[in-house]
Design a protein around this nucleic acid. Structure first.
Length: 647
RNA sequence: GCCGUUGUAGCUCAGUGGUAGAGCACUUCCUUGGUAAGGAAGAGGUCGUGAGUUCAAUUCUCACCAACGGCUCCA
């Protein structure tokens, strides 16, 4: 019998008989490893451990701790759940059941059955019961014809639909216990690895993600190889919920919503408005350094403006309906975008090539009629303020301008410690070009501009086709919230189209009219969404420079009220923000309340402090910095703020 | 917009076919207290809105509205 060479990740090479399985290799390494190993990677492809290896291969084993191990585990769990569901609800039709970031789901057509959260319990029990049988996941290649015959017999239209797109000869079935599914695998060795199961949610999901297709019931679940890991996961979920910006926004009195005002229309409370204003000033100052000029445009604009820009044709039907003037019968739209206004500002006078780039910035509030089901706290609303700006430049300036905008975004992200972002390059749909306006040539140029700039900056990048705006490609900065959902914050877009639609011009050195290029950009994205994500990242403990209340003075008793006010006025002179807790409560109580409010510094003022002109400083979280002169506290704040903003 | 869940005091949540309760917050009084909740009293709700069933609905049914979890969408 011939031998094959297996190269392990550490570079060592071992000889095995041809046809050795991944499991056998694991066993040859150690029995303990063989008990916990879930899948293998053979020449870059994740395989079942039971598959025979017939050629020399680079080889790696995956356990639960590995990303590949988890996804294989959850993929197999999805099959187990399908088996359990079929046992309880005979005749249900199955869609797809993939692993996801935290667990897995299966899309099911329950037919006439009602399935709700009340049924989770019995499904979980059934899954555990089936898992205990230690059923192996058995792989079987099958011809397309046989596969279709199988699912025709089973009357499962969704699997047949899937099979239509698969290539004959590459189709496999997997069977465990009494359940067989169309699946390319791989799977874990047997169901016995699955020890803890939790169904987490149900949701409607259109078949193949298409609104026009039938909506199936998506059942979300997660499984673990140990019961204790499930418990840990549930605790983690609870912790994440505490960081939810909707909860923190209410607790810290930053913003609220009112049904009487309307869905998705946030109301900023004084503290939230203060924080937001501070963020805006922070960005405005940076933008000044980069040569931006502030402009202001009104909240409504003539409908024709948006017809010219192309927005009306694309989004008019899904927007707030036009406002009609009584006398003239004119139509105005609530501003959904700032760019057309800025184009008109550009056109207010002729421009020379020497003036470019011109950078118009505006914290412009825009209104979009988002679908009701899509509204979500502050991250998806119907009225929001973009930290918008439009750069009008010559084609030869695009690259540099683009790089400068990236620098602004990175400066902001760095200052606020957003280190887990992904730069998403959003390009046209490869197959459907009809969704976009503008010439192919302009698109090519714009797409290349973005790809090149991103490469030059060495950003962590992912390319997504079909995610571009209808007028141009984008570079979006994606950041995750407390529950792991990705949100688009900063965005930069190259646009050759609007300048044409608005017939923008500048006079070149050749004394002829030329078309400028436009960059749309918003480093925060929207103030609403940015504050939401910032809240979740900081868990409400904002940096000192940004937080609405930097300190709170806690007089030990009424006797020190006057002294506290004196301190308060000194601090105010230095622009240090805070208040006095003048309630007739004990100090312990005042500290507790200040802790709950996440105020960075608590200044205790009593007999000793009044005599010495000091305050006793306690930091949020409990650290006691001891007594210090008021001037020293001023210094402490100022130095901390400078340090936070240094970058 | 679609599927599912939920809607009781400012907040977090009990509860019932006979028009409601707790804790915290709030108000007043007592207390003047040194690093995470001092004490007492009081006030506060058309039980999301509308309709139906019923002698009687906060409770059961339906519709609508909103929030939440997803799907689709996101200039």
């Amino acid at each position: 019998m011939s031998e094959i060479k297996i190269t392990l990740p550490d570079g060592s090479i071992r000889q095995y008989p041809k046809g050795t399985t991944g499991m056998q290799i694991a066993q040859s390494i150690s029995e303990g490893l063989a008990r916990v190993v879930l899948a293998a990677k053979v020449n870059g492809e994740v395989w079942d451990l039971s598959r025979e290896i017939h050629h020399d291969a680079d080889f790696q084993l995956f356990k639960w701790d590995d990303k590949e191990g988890k996804s294989t585990f959850w993929h197999s769990s999805a099959h187990l759940m399908a088996e359990a569901l079929e046992a309880i609800y005979p005749g249900i039709k199955l869609g797809i059941g993939p692993p996801i970031e935290n667990g897995f789901y299966y899309d099911i057509d329950f037919g006439l059955y009602n399935f709700s959260t009340d049924d989770f319990d019995k499904v979980e029990k059934k899954m555990i019961e089936l898992a205990k049988t230690n059923s192996e996941y058995i792989r079987k290649p099958i011809s397309k014809k046989e596969a279709i015959a199988y699912f025709t017999e089973k009357q499962d239209p969704y699997k047949i639909d899937l099979l239509k797109d698969l290539e004959d000869g590459k189709i496999t079935f997997y069977t465990q216990g009494n359940f067989t599914d169309l699946c390319k695998g791989p799977h874990i060795p047997h169901t016995g690895h699955i020890k803890a199961v939790k169904l987490t949610a149900t949701a409607g999901a259109y078949w193949r993600g298409d609104e026009k297709q039938k909506q199936l019931t998506r059942v979300y679940a997660i499984t673990f190889p140990k019961k204790s890991e499930l418990d840990e996961y549930l605790v983690l979920l609870e912790e994440a919920k505490k960081r939810d910006h909707r909860k923190l926004g209410k607790e810290l009195e930053l913003f609220t919503f009112s049904n009487k005002v309307g869905q998705g229309l946030p109301l900023w409370l004084p503290k939230g408005a203060d924080l937001r204003g501070r963020l805006q000033n922070f960005l405005m100052q940076k933008q000044k350094e980069f040569g931006y000029e502030q402009v202001i445009s009104p909240h409504i604009g003539h409908k024709q403006l948006y017809i010219t820009s192309g927005h009306y044709e694309k989004y008019g039907a899904d927007s707030f309906q036009p406002i009609h003037t009584p006398a003239e019968g004119e139509e105005f739209l609530l501003k959904p975008m700032n760019c057309p206004h800025h184009c008109e500002i550009y056109k207010s006078k002729p421009h020379s090539y020497k003036e470019l780039p011109i950078r118009y910035a505006e914290f412009g509030t825009v209104y979009r009629y988002e679908q009701s089901g899509e509204l979500h706290g502050l991250t998806r609303v119907r009225g929001f303020t973009q930290d918008d700006a439009h750069i009008f430049c010559r084609p030869d300036q695009v690259r540099e301008e683009f790089n400068n905008v990236i620098d602004i975004v990175l400066y902001i992200f760095k200052t606020l410690k957003f280190d887990n972002f992904i730069a998403q390059v959003s390009l046209r749909d490869k197959s459907d070009r009809s969704k976009y306006i503008g010439s192919a040539e302009n698109w090519e140029r714009a797409e290349n501009d973005i790809i090149e700039a991103t490469k030059a900056k060495g950003l962590p990048t992912v390319v997504e086709y079909g995610e571009a705006a209808f007028y141009g490609p984008k570079l979006d900065f994606m950041v995750k919230d407390a529950l792991g959902r990705s949100w688009q914050l900063g965005t930069i877009q190259v646009d050759y189209n609007l300048p044409e639609r608005f017939e923008l011009e500048y006079i070149g050195s050749d004394n002829k009219a030329h078309r400028p290029v436009m960059l749309h950009r918003a480093p925060f994205g929207s103030m609403e969404r940015f504050v939401a994500v910032l809240l979740e990242h900081t868990a409400g403990r904002f940096p000192l420079w940004l937080t609405p209340e930097q300190y709170i003075l806690l007089p030990i008793s009424d006797k020190f009220q006057e002294y506290s006010e004196k301190v308060f006025h000194i601090l105010k002179k230095y622009d240090i923000r805070g208040s006095i807790d003048a309630r007739s409560e004990k100090t312990g109580r005042k500290i507790r309340d200040a802790e709950v409010q996440k105020i960075p510094f608590m200044l205790i003022a009593g007999e000793k402090e009044m005599a010495e002109g000091t305050v006793s400083v306690r930091q949020h979280g409990g650290e006691d910095l001891g007594a210090m002169k008021v001037e020293d506290f001023v210094q402490l704040i100022q130095k901390t703020v400078i340090k936070e903003l240094q970058n």
